[in-house]
Amino acid sequence: METKKLTCIVCPLGCHVEITKNDGTFNVTGNKCPRGEKYAIEEMTNPTRVVPTTVVIKNASLSRLPVKTSKPVPKKDIFKVMELINQVEVEAPIKTGDIVIENILGLNVNIVATRSMKSVI
């Protein structure tokens, strides 16, 4: 039997959940919604995170475009994802949701723009 105390990070409520692993089954307590149970089990088996960051943008009123992973990626891959994102340069105009990198690291996750930026030329 293995017990872990976690803070759920699915939403800003931050429920304090306790998860117990027993013969391959999980028992989760302290969560206020079903997402908390899912989070706790994932945290024990394969923790994932959404990675928000920026890429260089040309011809816009600012020099950085905010982007994020379209889905959470495994925690262990975060720095590899960052390395690839940091090599990218885009050009305005950009619309929210535009794909900046497709299927990053073969994870079936895209890097998408999180704001629109007009071209200034």
Partner: peptide, 12 residues
């Protein structure tokens, strides 16, 4: 700060 930020910003 929010608890979730301690987890995902510091602990991670």
């Amino acid at each position: 700060g929010l608890n979730r930020n301690i987890v995902q910003c510091l602990d991670d």
